[in-house]
Design a protein around this nucleic acid. Structure first.
Lengths: 164, 164
DNA sequence: AATGTTATTGCAAATGAGTTGCAATAACAG
DNA sequence: CTGTTATTGCAACTCATTTGCAATAACATT
C-alpha cells in the first residue's frame, strides 16, 4: 500500500512510527495533525503559532526537529514557493496525488496544479536512467490570467519580507 | 528571439542591460561570465571565490545583488537542489533547453534531466488556467541506479553541511 | 504497575545565508 | 568633460534554522 494511503488510515502514523523506532509524543502528533488538516502551506513560524494554541510550552526547535523527521519519513513535503515570500520554507502533508505549485510573480497568488506529466517524468527517469523517484518538487513562476489581463508589465518581483 | 539565445550572442548582455537601464560594470560582467562558463551549479560562496580570483576586491554583497538582478532578468536560475547540501542556493545561467534537477538521496549525485514533459506542463497551464509560465523549477529526489544496486536501504538522508 | 533505556523535549546560545544603510565610485548619456 | 545616478564595498544586521545539553517522557520489559 502506498505510504500516503497508509498514513491516512486511522493509526497510520502510529504504525509508521513503530517501524522506525520513533516515539509518538503529544508534540509530534500535534504537529502532524496540524499539517494534515491545514488548508494551506504553513511555514515553521505559523506552525509554531498554531501548535502553541494547544500546547503552549512547545518550542520552535521541536517544530523544526519534527518537520525534519516527518520529511524523512516522506509524510511531509517541504516547499520554497520560489522564495517569493522570503527565505523560509513551507510544509504540507504529502497528498495522494502529486502536484506542482504555481505562483504568480505579479500578485503572489499560489495554486496547486495537478497534471499527469509528473507521473510521466517519474516513468521516464525510471526507464531512461534507472532512477527511482521518491518525491518531486515542481515550482513554477509566471503570470496568472488576472494579472495578464490587467496588463501589468510584471514589476520584476521584489523579494519582500511580509512573512519573515 | 528567445531571451536566452539573444544573450548567448556576443553583446547580448550589453543589449539587455541597456534595455533595462542597467550598467555593465566589470563585476557584473565577471559574475555573469563565471556562471555562463561554469560546468556545475555554483552557490554564492563558490561564485564569490571564483570572482575574487580575477577581481580581488569584490564583495559578497555584490555577488548577491547581481544574482538578484540576473535572476530578475531571467538569465540566471536559482536552485535549491532540495537542500541536500545545506540551506544555500545554487545558480546556473539559463539554458536554451529547460531541464529538471535530479538528486540521489543516497550518494548525493545531482544530474540534469531533459524531458518534453516540461513543455507539456507549460502548455497545460496556459490552456487550462490562462497562466503564462516564466520559469519552472523541478527538483526530484530518489535513488540512482548505482545506489539501488548496492541495495543500500537509503539511510534517511541527513542534511549535512559539506558546503556551507 | 514499576523500571530501565533512550528518543524527545525545551532552553539558551550559536550559526550562517542573505540583507540593509550609507558614503564613495564609476557607467554612461549628453 | 560633466552631471546624473546605478553600483560598489564596508560594516553591521536580520532571521530562519541548528546545536549542545540536561531534564523529561515513551515505550518495551519485567
Amino acid at each position: 500500500m502506498p505510504l500516503v494511503k497508509q498514513i491516512r488510515r486511522r493509526g497510520g502514523l502510529e504504525l509508521l512510527a513503530k517501524q522506525h523506532g520513533l516515539r509518538l509524543t503529544r508534540q509530534r502528533r500535534l504537529i502532524f495533525s496540524i499539517l494534515e488538516s491545514a488548508k494551506t502551506h504553513l511555514n515553521a513560524k505559523q506552525l509554531l503559532e498554531q501548535a502553541q494554541r494547544l500546547e503552549p510550552g512547545i518550542d520552535q526547535v521541536t517544530i523544526y526537529r519534527n518537520l525534519g523527521v516527518l520529511k524523512r519519513l516522506g509524510v511531509v513535503d517541504e516547499l520554497d514557493l520560489l522564495h517569493l515570500r522570503g527565505d523560509q520554507h513551507y510544509y504540507e502533508a504529502r497528498q495522494v496525488r502529486a502536484h506542482s505549485h504555481v505562483a504568480c510573480l505579479a500578485c503572489g497568488k499560489v495554486f496547486e496544479f495537478y497534471t499527469s506529466a509528473m507521473k510521466t517524468i517519474d516513468r521516464e527517469l525510471e526507464k531512461e536512467c534507472g532512477f527511482t523517484v521518491s518525491f518531486t518538487r515542481i515550482e513554477i513562476g509566471g503570470h496568472c490570467a488576472a494579472c495578464r489581463k490587467s496588463e501589468r508589465v510584471a514589476p520584476l518581483p521584489r523579494k519582500g519580507k511580509q512573512t519573515r
